[in-house]
């Protein structure tokens, strides 16, 4: 088990290097620092001096890969590739274009993101599984067919509609909770209820439909017929036979998401004014702050790879037949 995890971690290194190279190519080779300076300063009226000043200020005035002017170690370390990309591995994200320290920004903003994403995730799974189990109980009846139709309908509605509609009905018309905002002290729950509710409802269509398919795949197995033949009640079959066996495919889809919860949701956070990483990314994209986008890409890939490793570990817990070696 331990050896397996170490090996998986070692596998992660080339992938992270690949991510790093890809972002570097995108941000510095395709789009040279000069282009960036021009777009940050405004396309018209830029002088070569202004571009040079901007590059010096943001540390882009170095060669891309090899600095032949510096001797010794400086040949490699005093380049854009080293200062901007390699340092990501040490979680040193540098400063954003507006001069703020990205590392400290991220460590502050990750908690509001988690405060919204974690309840949405847990409640969402619980609701989806409950709904799906209920539908499976009425499998192959008219009720089942209509619920599936309703699921497809719910899936076909844009996420933006759920958010805008939820804000309009719950917050504006009924005035039950504030429309948006976040308060770290005291009544956080007041600001969290609506985003979580919207997130859960928006996910029911696709989620419950997916779980239903998984449960039905198990419901057609021989062991279910055997259980029914020996006189188990439908409830016992659902909870003791189908649910545990469907856990493996459920874990495959679900565990990988857990680490990425830290990243938050772009849409939910920006609509509800939650100062998390999602709105951080959105602001960065809108103000074309490539330093932040680069850091978030790196963090996102680390979290995703962590999720993959966690998925494998969770298999050993869910399925006694699986051994990691």
């Amino acid at each position: 088990m331990f050896a397996y995890i170490v090996r998986r971690l070692l596998y992660a290194i080339p992938i992270l290097i690949g991510v790093n190279l890809l972002t570097f190519t995108l941000f510095f080779v395709v789009n040279s620092p000069d282009d960036m300076a021009v777009s940050q300063l405004g396309a018209k009226y830029v002088t070569p001096e202004a571009i040079q000043n901007w590059k010096v200020k943001n540390g882009y005035d170095k060669p891309l890969f090899l600095n032949s002017e510096e001797g010794g170690v400086g040949t490699i370390t005093d380049t854009i590739f080293f200062t901007k990309s390699v340092k990501l591995f040490a979680f040193d994200f540098g400063r954003s274009e507006s001069g703020r320290d990205i590392t400290s920004d991220i460590s502050v903003r990750m908690w509001p993101s988690l405060a919204v994403a974690l309840p949405t995730f847990l409640v969402g799974i619980w609701v989806n599984i409950c709904v799906a189990l209920m539908v499976v109980m009425f499998h192959a009846t008219r009720l089942d067919r209509w619920t599936v139709f309703v699921f497809v309908g719910l899936m076909s509605i844009s996420y933006l509609f759920y958010i805008i509609g939820g804000q309009y009905m719950v917050a504006k018309t009924w005035r039950l909770v504030p429309i948006s905002g976040f308060d770290a002290q005291g009544q956080v729950w007041k600001f969290l209820i609506l985003p979580v509710l919207v997130g859960v409802i928006a996910g029911i269509g696709a989620g419950a439909r997916w779980y239903r398919t998984l449960f039905l795949e198990e419901a057609n197995q021989d062991y279910v017929r055997t259980a029914r033949a020996k006189g188990c009640s439908e409830i016992t079959i659902l909870f003791r036979h189908i649910l545990p066996n469907a856990l493996i495919p459920i874990l495959t889809g679900v565990v990988v998401l857990i680490p990425t919860l830290f990243m938050g949701s772009l849409l939910i956070e920006s609509f509800f004014g939650i100062p998390g990483l999602g709105s951080y990314m959105l602001d960065a994209i809108r103000s074309q702050d490539f330093a932040i986008v680069r850091s978030m890409v790196f963090i996102g890939s680390i979290l995703y790879i962590t999720g993959l490793i966690l998925t494998d570990i969770s298999y050993t817990w869910a399925d006694p037949r699986v051994r990691l070696n």
């Binding site: 991510v19 972002t23 995108l26 772009l266 994209i285 890409v297 996102g300 995703y304």
Partner: peptide, 16 residues
Amino acid sequence: TLSSIPGILLIAASVL
């Protein structure tokens, strides 16, 4: 490698 990068960020960066 590609799937480990958050899709929305990759798309946003490329479009920008």
